[in-house]
Structure formats: C-alpha cells, structure tokens
Design a protein around this nucleic acid. Structure first.
Length: 491
RNA sequence: GGCGCAUUCGUCUAGGGGCCUAGGACGCUGGCCUCUCACGCCGGUAACACGGGUUCGAAUCCCGUAUGCGCUACCA
C-alpha cells in the first residue's frame, strides 16, 4: 500500500461541500464519511457547506434531505451548514481584489465565438481552452452596453506556467497552464461560479485539507490559482478514487440503489452502512472488515486510502449488514426493527400500536435470518393478516392430501393437549409427535408450518405457532384441515 | 481530440525487491447442519493488463503500450 504516504495527524479543518441538487448518493456519503472520520480522528473540525451557486438546480428539499441523511448516518458537523447563496458579499469582496490586481478580466465573447475557439483548438489537436480577449475599444464597450451585453469575468491564467498539486493520495500531479483555460469566475449575471466560490470559501473558512472525489482533480489547479491570486496558500488536497457501478462507470441512479435514502428505506442501518462505505477505497490491514463507527474513527487514516476506483458490491454490503444485525443486542435489534417498520408505514397499515407488540414478540424469530430490516415482511408479514395460503405452499400440501391431513391433524391433536403454548413446549410436543407417527422431521414439520402461516418461507414452525398463540393457531389449523378435507372428499 | 488518473482473483482488497508456489473477504462451488428461508462450520475455485528494462532476485523500481475512467460549461 502506499506506505509512506503523508498522514494527517494534527487537528484539521475539513469540509463536506455537496451541491443540493438531489439526494445524497453513495459517493458523496463516503466523501462525507472520510472527512468526518479524519476530523474526529484528529480532534479537528468537520464543516458543512452547501454549494448552491447553481440556483437553477439547487433546491431546499435537496438541502434538507442531505442534512437529514448526514444526521441519520451519525455524521454531525461542527460548523455550518454554510450556504454559498448567502455569501455573496464574501465573493464580491474577493472578486474586487481579483479585479484590482488584474487577475481577472471582463470577457464578452458570444457562445458562438467560444464554441468556434474550442472547435478550432480541437481541429489542431490542441487543448480546447478558451482565452478571452482582454482589451476592447471604447466603441465596442459602448456597443455592448447598448446591446445589453454583460461580460463574464475570466481568470487570467498565467502563461507560461504550471500548477502542481501535492496530492495526499495520488502524489504529485502537474497541470500545465496551456491546458487550463481562462475559466469563468463571475457569471454575466454577477454570480460567482463554483471554482471561485469553492476557492474563496476554502481559504476563508480556514480549511486545512480538502478531501473530495477524484472527479474534482482537474478543478484543483484552477482553485489553487484563485487562492494564490488572493494571496493565500492552498490547503492540502486528497482526491479519493471514484465509486463505480458494475459497468465500471461512476455509480449513479442508473445503477439502482445509489442514494443513501434508498438504503435507509431498504432497511439498512447507518453504522454498518458506514462500515461498508469506509471499505470502498480504504482498508485497514486487508483483513479486518468489521468496524463500528467509533472503531472507524480510531482506525481511519488518509494514508491508507486507495488510488484506484472501486466497484460497489451491493451483495457484499448486504452480507456485512446481515452479520451486523445478527450481532446486535436483541433489544437494540427489536427497537431498530420497530423504528424501521414505523418509518415505512407498515405499523400504521397494520393497526398501529397493537402491531408494534406483534413486531416486538416476533423480532427474535427473525433476528439472525434477515440481512435487511425490510425482509421482516417476507418472513413475518403473515402474522399481521388472516390466514391465506399462497399457491405454491398449497401445492406442497395437496401433493399428498392424505398425508397432509394425517400429519397436520396429528400435530393439532398433540398440541391441543398442551398445558402451555410456549416455543419450548410446542417444540417438545411436535418432536414427540413426529416420532410417535414415525415421520421424518421435514415431512412432518413443513406441513404444520404451512398450515398456520400459509407461506413457503416464514419464521420457524415452533416460533410461528407460539407467536400466533393457542387460539389463533388452532383456528388456522382447523381451517386448513377443513380445506384439505374438502379436496379429499371430492377426490 | 486534449489534459489527468488508474490497472493484483468476477468484486472489495493485502502487498514499500527475496517472507508470494500472492494472503483475507464477498461471490460462485462441493460437503456438513437442517422443518422452509436463512445462519453457522469445513473444503474448493479464481488474480499480479502487456512488453521492455534495472537487479543475483520484481506483484513490488523505471520506461513504453494497451485498456478503463474522470475532466474538458456562464454545473458542481
């Protein structure tokens, strides 16, 4: 691994700076996680900043969702959220200084002219960069004013020259200024662009380390240029590898569950999700994989962040999540399950508080069998509805009607004499009955389970019976027996 | 097209010249356990992109090639 890689050891000031244009995706969540981890690890500060300079696409809903998800994940911030849309004066001040020093210039090119400039460069197999005209005659200026043409302000990239990033993950990365165009810093409507706002904010907020996705690396020299023009020294940078979908392209909504919100809705818990996210692009020793959030804080280091992108493996995330659920304290699991089922509306849809009781009682029977909380419904959903035997399960019973009747009847008869109806008592009784009847466990127990749950897949036979309680269990037994008897009679 | 980055089992990864006939995990697979679905346990499968160097010795260092990805906006 990239052993002597620089490490952050002093308390740092890091930031997570999403643009509120959608829900928080896995990639962004991991970036937030890494920043948060290193802040907590070093006793530094984690700052939240919303980059909403794109007023068209930024929405308050998205912002609220991002804050909510971050909180859900357990990633609390020490400062902010700052909003770039509320910091116009800060940027205006920076722009004034840039103008005063001649670091930026007004450019009046039309879209067509810019397009032609880039096309021309392409034709010559050159970098498609834009260099605006810096001098205009008074007549031209007057004409533009008359036409209502407003300039954008471009950064005058110094030529010749180069900007070098000493990236904490990738090492030295050099960009020749020939390949950096005179990027726009102020739009024609006077608003700041991302490269200006991000640079100004990182300086102004005293950010010491910028940890962000690799997709930002080509913006970095631009931002460094702005910072230096402002007389500031850029922070340290760590560009982390992208998270890919199965097709090796950057993970996005196209790949299915790509937003944290969806994972949450699918019944994933925050801590194990963070655990999985942390393992994408970072490893501790190549062997240890289970980390609680506090353990991650303890173990995390930027020096062990990988340089190459990683494909997100949903299956592995699920497996790890299942293990986490199995290891939870029973009470914690039950509460998490109840909370989840409340949030999905399952509780309300099944009678409210009485349903909570059923969930609580059945939780132990599903703990250890599910990887995601949403799977509870498949295993125990039948508990909340009247008996309805699904077709495939009915086929099992009717494959040998006579045998089913005998076995189910035998089970019922034995159970009816039970003084108490606990899992243990039911188990002992059924096991005994199975031997008495000389049946194989499978041939005997499967029909019992189907008779009362109606499902091919459900909680275990003994648990299911005990969960239903004597009366309900017997009534279901009898209903199933009656149906089978009908078939037997007509056959 | 330009610039940048990356490249170890299908996937996540360990690996800083000999400890590597490449380790762990998921997947897949064989078996055990077993009332369904799962869990758990035991075993197997499978990788250093390619080509040149450097070196007694390279997955590890250098160069090149290939491939992939990112960026290439008055989006962030």
């Amino acid at each position: 691994m990239p052993p002597h890689r620089p490490e952050i050891t002093e308390p740092c000031r890091v930031r997570f700076a999403p643009s509120p244009t959608g829900s928080l995706h896995v990639g962004g969540a991991r970036t937030a996680l890494f920043n948060w981890l290193i802040a907590r690890r070093t006793g530094g500060r984690f700052i939240l900043r919303l980059e909403d300079t794109d007023r068209e696409r930024s929405t308050p809903e998205s912002e609220a969702e991002i804050l909510r998800v971050l909180t859900w994940m357990g990633l609390d911030w020490d400062e902010g959220p700052y909003r770039q849309s509320e910091r116009d004066d800060v940027y205006a001040d920076a722009v004034e200084r840039l103008k005063a020093s001649g670091a930026v210039y007004a450019a009046y090119e039309t879209d067509e002219e810019l397009e032609e400039q880039r096309a021309e460069a392409r034709r010559n197999k050159q970098a498609p960069v834009v260099r605006g005209r810096r001098e205009y005659s008074d007549e031209e200026l007057a004409r533009f004013a008359e036409e209502g043409r407003r300039p954008v302000w471009r950064f005058a990239v110094p030529l010749p020259g180069e900007t070098v990033i000493e990236d904490m993950v990738r090492g030295t990365v050099t960009f020749g200024h020939d390949n950096i165009e005179d990027f726009v810093v102020v739009r024609s409507d006077g608003s700041p662009t991302y490269n200006l706002a991000a640079a100004v904010d990182d300086v102004e907020m005293g950010i010491t380390h910028v940890i962000r996705g690799e997709d930002h690396i080509s913006n970095t020299p631009k931002q460094m240029l702005v910072m230096r023009a402002l007389g500031a020294e850029p922070p340290a940078y760590a560009h982390i590898p992208l998270i890919l979908g199965p097709d090796k392209k950057r993970l996005s909504k196209r790949h299915g569950a790509a937003s944290v919100e969806e994972f949450e809705a699918d019944g994933f818990l925050a801590e194990p999700l963070c655990n999985s996210l942390a393992l994408l692009g970072w490893s501790f020793d190549g062997k240890t994989e289970r980390f609680s959030l506090p353990e991650l804080v303890e173990a995390f280091s930027v020096g062990r962040i990988s340089k190459s992108p990683s494909v997100f493996d949903l299956r592995k995330t699920e497996v790890m999540h299942g293990r986490y659920l199995r290891m939870m304290e029973p009470e914690a699991f039950t509460e998490a399950l109840v909370n989840y089922l409340r949030s999905t509306g399952f509780i309300d849809a099944h009678g409210g508080e009485p349903a909570v009781e059923i969930v609580r009682r059945s939780a132990p029977a599903v703990k250890g069998k599910i990887a995601r909380l949403s799977e509870y419904v498949n295993l125990a959903g039948w508990l909340f509805e009247p008996l309805a035997i699904e077709p495939a399960a009915w086929d099992v019973l009717t494959a040998d009607v006579k045998h089913s009747i005998q076995v189910i009847g035998g089970g019922l008869g034995r159970l009816e004499s039970l003084p108490e109806f606990t899992v243990e008592a039911v188990k002992d009784a059924l096991q005994d009955q199975l031997h008495v009847m000389g049946e194989a466990a499978r041939d005997f127990l499967e029909p019992q389970r189907i008779a009362v749950t109606g499902r091919l897949v459900s909680t275990g036979t003994y648990e299911s019976l005990a969960l239903l309680g004597r009366e309900e269990a017997f009534s279901r037994y009898r209903a199933t027996l009656a149906r089978l008897a009908d078939i037997w009679a007509t056959a």
